[in-house]
Computed example of a mutant assay.
Amino acid sequence: MRHDNWRRGYRLPPNDWRRGQRVDYRAYHLAPPPRGYEWRQVDGNYVMAAVATGIIASTIIAASR
């Protein structure tokens, strides 16, 4: 699924945050998140966002099929 609005500095919608699964960044060779951030996998995409605010720091968007 495309998420064109998922960019650095944008807010990850609360519904997307809640349905996303927390990701062990080491297992997926992702950059370690800073304190207060975590990686989530939503719709096959990886998003690092602030836990408290949902502000996106980094994204890895799945390729379209």
Rank of each mutant, 00 (worst) to 15 (best):
I61K: 04
H29I: 07
R26P: 08
R26C: 03
D43T: 14
A50L: 09
G36C: 08
A49C: 15
G54T: 12
Y37V: 01
G36W: 11
R40W: 09
D24N: 14
V51M: 14
A52D: 08
V47C: 03
A57F: 10
G44V: 15
P32D: 00
Y25P: 03
V47Y: 07
T59M: 02
G36T: 01
N45W: 06
P32M: 00
G36F: 12
G54Q: 10
Y46P: 13
D43R: 14
E38P: 00
V47E: 11
A52K: 14
G44L: 13
I56L: 08
I61F: 00
P34M: 06
R40N: 07
V42L: 05
L30M: 01
Y28D: 10
A27D: 10
Y37L: 03
A57R: 15
P32T: 00
R40H: 10
V47H: 03
Y25L: 02
H29Y: 09
R35I: 06
V42R: 00
V51L: 07
A49T: 14
V47F: 05
L30I: 06
M48Y: 09
I56Q: 07
S58Y: 10
H29Q: 07
G36Y: 11
I61A: 01
L30R: 01
Y28A: 04
G54Y: 15
V42G: 02
D24R: 05
I61C: 00
V42C: 08
I60N: 03
W39T: 05
V42E: 06
A50C: 08
Y28T: 04
V51Y: 11
I55S: 09
I56G: 09
G54R: 12
R35F: 11
M48L: 13
A49E: 14
E38N: 08
Y46M: 14
Y37K: 00
G44K: 04
T53S: 15
R40S: 08
N45M: 10
T53C: 08
D43M: 04
A57Y: 06
P33T: 01
G54C: 11
Y25I: 03
D24A: 04
R35C: 00
N45S: 15
A49D: 12
S58A: 12
I56R: 02
Y28S: 06
S58V: 06
